[in-house]
Computed example of a mutant assay.
Amino acid sequence: MIAKAKSVKGSLAGALYKERPDKDHEIIYQNNMFGETAHERWEELRDIANLNTRLENKYIENVVSPPKEIGDQLSREDWEKLAKDYALKSGYGENQWYAVLHQNTDERHLHIYANRINFEGKNTIDSEKIGERSGKIAEELSQERGWKTAKEISSDKKADIRQCLENSVSSSRSWDQVESKMEEQGYVLELSYQDKNGVRTLNGARITPTEEYKGKEEMSRREQLSKKGYKLSEIDRNMKIKELDNKLKKNLEKSQNYGRSL
């Protein structure tokens, strides 16, 4: 599971974004709040936050995203418990916070918005290293539930991709063949080239599970920047595109020599 957190100034626009119709959202839980609309929730948060005139970033924005295969199976009650457990470990206590489930992407995820200011006007949530802490909390919650952590999931994916790529290269004579074999096994292989002094040179590759892949024309700007999949160096730092390319050339040469010997 992945969790991200940051302190923010907050705004009505930010609150409205979380509940846009295209987000296929659902309010999962509200703590010490009674608002029924995004406007009302923002006004409640702001009224309490304004009790503190010294702090600039008075809110915490969180995104909590379980692995797809788990998130797809969670009930509303499961999401509520996840939100409460995350908030408890994050130290929100009796402060105002609410959780919104977004279901418009491949991976269902929670947006949790918390007020750092309590009802006495005191800042009760330390923002130092909050992103790092949120990651550790996600790992703790994953372990408690028997879920794989983000690192474990990524490691498993990389191992599978490496095995698939190595097998495909070993049995191919061109990158077209490799791409086709990777596709058959559920991966999209994208090669990258560098143009220098009029010479086009292969300089890298990115491999993405087909279920996570979208063409650029289908992707939002945020999705394009997030770059699903892995570069070769991320799969294995010792895996080099030139070595794989040379392997294909040798395979081609062997097949040609064999054909001439017949």
Rank of each mutant, 00 (worst) to 15 (best):
I130H: 14
L262H: 05
G93I: 02
N257F: 15
L82Y: 03
D236A: 05
R46H: 05
S134T: 05
Y98W: 12
Q103H: 02
E69I: 04
Y29W: 09
G186S: 06
W147M: 13
F34Y: 08
K228Y: 02
E94A: 03
E36F: 05
R54W: 12
I241E: 02
L244G: 06
W42Q: 15
H111V: 08
E234H: 11
L141Q: 03
K196H: 07
T53H: 15
E61H: 15
R200P: 00
V100W: 03
S155P: 02
D176G: 07
Q256T: 06
I235Q: 07
N31Q: 15
E44Y: 04
N95M: 10
N50F: 08
G215T: 05
K250M: 06
S180L: 00
D195C: 09
G186D: 01
D24C: 12
A159L: 10
D160Y: 00
T105D: 10
A114M: 07
K181P: 05
D22Y: 11
I130T: 11
P21K: 06
R54F: 12
G71W: 02
E43H: 11
N32K: 13
G93P: 06
E144Y: 15
G10R: 09
H109F: 01
Y213S: 09
E61V: 04
M182A: 01
I130W: 15
K254Y: 09
E128Q: 12
Q73R: 14
S261I: 04
Y92E: 03
M33F: 00
E223F: 06
R133I: 08
Y187W: 06
I153L: 07
E36L: 10
N118Q: 07
G229H: 06
N32I: 05
R260A: 11
H109L: 03
R222H: 10
D47N: 08
R221Y: 14
G14K: 12
K58M: 05
H25E: 12
L82V: 01
E190Y: 04
L262Q: 08
T124E: 15
N50H: 10
R222N: 09
T210I: 07
W42M: 15
I207R: 10
W97D: 13
K6Q: 09
L45Y: 00
K9A: 06
Y187P: 05
I70R: 10
D176W: 00
K58R: 13
Q143P: 04
I153P: 14
N104V: 03
V178L: 00
L88K: 14
D176A: 00
N31S: 13
W175P: 00
N257R: 13
L202N: 01
K23C: 04
Q177P: 03
K6H: 11
E179G: 08
R206W: 13
E253A: 14
D106L: 08
E44N: 08
A15E: 07
E43F: 09
K122W: 15
G215H: 10
Q103I: 00
E183A: 14
I207M: 11
E94T: 04
K181S: 02
S75Y: 13
P67L: 00
A114T: 03
M1C: 06
E80Y: 00
E19C: 15
R206M: 07
E19Q: 15
N104I: 02
W97E: 12
Y29K: 12
K9Q: 12
S192L: 10
E234F: 14
Q96L: 07
I70D: 08
K250N: 06
E19N: 13
L202V: 01
T208Y: 11
E44L: 09
